[in-house]
Design a protein around this nucleic acid. Structure first.
Lengths: 151, 151
DNA sequence: CTGCAAGTTGAAGTTCACTTCAACTCAAGG
DNA sequence: CCTTGAGTTGAAGTGAACTTCAACTTGCAG
C-alpha cells in the first residue's frame, strides 16, 4: 500500500470522484495497472496527471485538448521532470494566452470601460488576435468571421 | 439603423450565433426591446454584455455565475462606466484567482516540477486554498473533502 | 472462512450550452 | 402586391463531462 494507489485512494487524494477517474481513463487521460482480480492500481505519478487535468479544466480547457497535451509525455516509461518541462513549454503558450485574456478582461473592466468608450471591442481590445469568435463549449456553428472592430 | 441592432447585426458584431443570443436572453444574460412585429432590437450597450459573457466563459466561468455578476448592473437604466467598474471589483477577485491558478500551473510545470518533487500537490501548491476539489462541469458528487496535502 | 466495504462493468440518466428543425411572420426592395 | 431574406417560437437533438444504477466480484479484517 505504498507503491500504488487504489481508485478510492486516488480519489481521496485528488478530490476527483472514482467515476470521474474511470471516465478519465476511458478518455486516455490517466492509466492504471490491474491486480489479479481486475482492480485498478495507480502509480503515484498519476496523481500529478490528475492535478494537471483538474487545473487545466478549471481554466476552460477541454479534456480532449488536455489529452493531446498529456500525449506528449512518454507512455513507455515514468515521466521525468524533464518530460513535464517539455509539456510545459508547449502548454505555456496556451496558458499565457488565457492569462492575457483574463488580465485584459480585468483591466478593461476598470480601465478601458472606465474611460467611457462604448464597447469592449474597442480601445486595447481591438487588435486582431482578440477575436471573440473563438472556442466555447457546446455544439458550434461556423460563422463567417465576426466584424468585431467596426463602430 | 443606428440606435439599435437586429439579432443578425448583434450576431455579426459579437461573433455569437443568433441562436446563442436567444439562449442568453432566456437565461437573463442580455435583454432586448421588441418592434411592433415582435422582433428583437438590441441597444448597443448589449454588445458589451455579450463580450463580457464570452470572455468570462472562455476562462471557465459558467453562464449562471456570469448572470449573477451581470445582475449587479442596474436593470432600469443604461449601465454607466461606474456601474461596470463596480461589477469589475466584484469580478476582480474571481479573475485574480483564475490568474493565480494559471500562473501557478505554468510556473509549477517548469519550476516546482523541474525541482524533482513528486506531486503537484506539494511545494508551493500545498496551501489550503489550493484545493483541487472545486468546481467542474457536469453533474457533481459531493465528496468528503479531499486529502490533498498528505504524502 | 465469513462478512462487508470497496471495486468492476455497461447502460442509462443528467446538466450545461448550445444548435437544428419546422412552421410560421416580418420588413424592405422592386 | 409579391417576393425574399431575416426574424419568431417551441420542441427536439447534440456533445461534453460526468453520475447513478444494477448486478456482480475482490480483498482484507476478524
Amino acid at each position: 500500500m505504498h507503491e500504488s494507489l487504489t481508485i478510492g485512494q486516488l480519489s481521496a487524494r485528488s478530490g476527483v470522484a472514482p467515476s470521474a477517474l474511470r471516465y478519465y481513463e476511458r478518455l486516455g487521460l490517466i492509466r492504471a495497472e490491474r491486480t489479479g482480480g481486475n482492480q485498478r492500481r495507480y502509480a503515484r505519478t498519476e496523481l500529478r496527471r490528475v492535478a494537471f487535468v483538474r487545473i487545466s479544466q478549471q481554466v476552460g480547457i477541454s479534456l480532449e485538448e488536455i489529452r493531446e497535451a498529456l500525449d506528449s509525455l512518454p507512455s513507455s516509461r515514468t515521466p521525468t521532470p524533464d518530460d513535464w518541462a517539455a509539456l510545459s513549454s508547449a502548454w505555456r503558450e496556451r496558458l499565457d494566452e488565457k492569462i492575457r485574456l483574463l488580465g485584459k478582461l480585468r483591466d478593461d473592466l476598470d480601465g478601458c470601460i472606465g474611460c467611457g468608450c462604448l464597447s469592449l471591442q474597442r480601445c486595447k481590445l481591438n487588435n486582431p488576435e482578440d477575436s471573440l469568435a473563438g472556442e466555447g463549449p457546446g455544439a458550434r456553428l461556423v460563422l463567417p468571421r465576426a466584424d468585431v472592430t467596426r463602430e
